[in-house]
Design a protein around this nucleic acid. Sequence first.
DNA 1: TTCTTTTTATGAACACTGTTCATTATTTTT
DNA 2: AAAAATAATGAACAGTGTTCATAAAAAGAA
Lengths: 204, 204
Amino acid sequence: MGIIERKERERQEVRSLILEAAQQAFIEDGYEKASIRAIADRVEYSPATIYLYFKDKSEIFFAVHELGFEKLILEMSDAIEGIKNPLEKLRQQGYAYMKFALENPAMYDLMFIQNAPMEAIFDNEEWACGHRCFELICTIVQECIDNKLIKISGLELATMSIWSFMHGLVSLKIRNRFKMFPQEHIQQLMSASVEQMIELIQHD
Amino acid sequence: MGIIERKERERQEVRSLILEAAQQAFIEDGYEKASIRAIADRVEYSPATIYLYFKDKSEIFFAVHELGFEKLILEMSDAIEGIKNPLEKLRQQGYAYMKFALENPAMYDLMFIQNAPMEAIFDNEEWACGHRCFELICTIVQECIDNKLIKISGLELATMSIWSFMHGLVSLKIRNRFKMFPQEHIQQLMSASVEQMIELIQHD
DNA sequence: TTCTTTTTATGAACACTGTTCATTATTTTT
DNA sequence: AAAAATAATGAACAGTGTTCATAAAAAGAA
């Protein structure tokens, strides 16, 4: 009776095929502009078929945005591997965060900027991936606090401040709000800004 | 021959009537969900008439978003009125910025988060209102630098850092990404974060 | 005033969107 | 081979931004 198992496997295969196509479409055209019909075309299915695998567009959004978190978590974990100094971990984690955002702006958009579907899902879901990512940052910040490496003593306060700074930096860049800075200096200004931030919060 | 002048006046009146309706619609439903037809209904015109006064939806967006900047500029100017200490000016300006964002989230969205129409307009326009607002912040930061009140010496670097921090703080809040913090503490955590930031950058 | 010209407003249509559902095709079970 | 269950789809609905030929209103000229 391995049939129902094979069926389930096939089902998951189609599901992830759709997911892959959706991710591609979101990255290329953004969430709003990427249409169900375009996603359906990519996997050579009818648009209606999509709805056999996902409740609606926002569910696709959520699934794709989870892939993004997995990738970000992986890249941030890799970035701090082998590093001992918690402050250096924090720096490298920050750079990994920035790198991810600038290299995958559409994905970052889905994860941290996009609005609409969030509300619909947040309330019922646990947003596990979001929390896992958050805790990854919290851990490092806590290490910095424990070793008295940074000037901010409250974990929540420190995390909120640092994350806000990083998010503001990359999201203003992604959303083209840095037009008033000389175009060719923006990248290095951003790096300098991260460096400056680390310097400011570290204990002397 | 005052007729063409009256015509022009009437034209501007209708235009700002549409603008007012659009602003209301954007605030209530957000930019994407607010439809041209809904805006037309509000002013009791045909949807097609809108296009006699605005090229397309993104032009309405731009006009409304300009109103937002005027308001923000006004509120930030008011907030620092009569204050001598540049650092205190910076603090109050920061709080005014935060207050504006939290009280007019939809407008802040249009001004600093929304994506699509920006690209289309940025290239040709000067984005005068954006620059005016930016310079308002620059002025204060420059004063702080001149009086050796803050640790960051570069104007561009300091402005980018401070603005990014403030934007990250309010935009993560607006886009509901602070779910992992205790709901009832978020507001005071945000204020504490601003305070902390000021403390960190000030010279001792 | 009456007639002509210019300005202003609109209804209908186009191509698109997310989504639903009755109908068809395929696969599994009897 | 027939019946039941699963999977896929075409067609449709109500919505979107936008265009354009047509209709209404206002202005200028006689």
